[in-house]
Computed example of a mutant assay.
Amino acid sequence: MNVDQLMRIIEAEHLPTPVVYGMGRLHLDAVVLERDGERWRVYLADERTQPFETTIRTFADEESALEHVLVKLREVEKSRRSLPPFSN
């Protein structure tokens, strides 16, 4: 899988858009993909847009990292659907 393929899946499944290599909107529960030299890092962002330490995963190749991004996006979306509607 490459970034273009990931984005097509995201669009088809109506998943939230991740932050990929600094592109995208950083917010609570955003799925983030970063590259650090020869490693890729995927995590969920907290309310201060910092990584939830327990969600940080590192990968030796981009394809595995992108597949993990997709898994996390599906988990986040499933979790959001299970919450009651927000009202003021």
Rank of each mutant, 00 (worst) to 15 (best):
M1V: 05
D4C: 05
D4T: 14
Q5C: 02
L6M: 04
L6R: 02
M7E: 11
M7L: 15
R8W: 02
I9T: 14
I10K: 06
E11G: 08
A12Q: 15
A12W: 13
H14G: 09
H14D: 12
L15T: 08
L15R: 02
L15W: 00
P18C: 08
P18K: 11
V19N: 01
V19T: 05
V19I: 01
G22P: 01
G24I: 05
G24Y: 09
H27S: 14
H27W: 00
L28C: 12
D29A: 13
D29S: 14
A30R: 10
V31E: 07
L33Q: 11
R35I: 03
D36A: 08
G37I: 02
G37H: 00
R39I: 05
W40D: 00
R41F: 15
V42G: 06
Y43Q: 07
Y43M: 07
Y43C: 14
Y43F: 15
L44R: 13
A45V: 05
A45H: 03
D46R: 01
D46S: 03
E47G: 15
E47L: 07
R48M: 01
R48W: 04
T49S: 12
Q50A: 14
Q50T: 08
P51A: 07
F52N: 10
E53S: 13
E53I: 11
T54Y: 09
T55I: 02
T55M: 07
T55F: 01
I56C: 02
I56S: 03
R57D: 12
R57W: 05
T58W: 14
F59V: 00
E62N: 07
E62P: 02
E63S: 11
E63A: 11
S64P: 06
A65K: 03
A65P: 03
L66P: 02
H68V: 05
H68M: 12
V69F: 09
L70C: 10
L70A: 11
V71F: 14
K72E: 15
L73C: 03
L73F: 07
L73N: 04
R74F: 10
E77I: 02
E77C: 09
K78T: 15
R80A: 13
R81G: 06
R81D: 08
S82Y: 14
S82T: 13
L83V: 04
S87N: 03
N88A: 09
N88G: 10
N88S: 10
N88K: 10
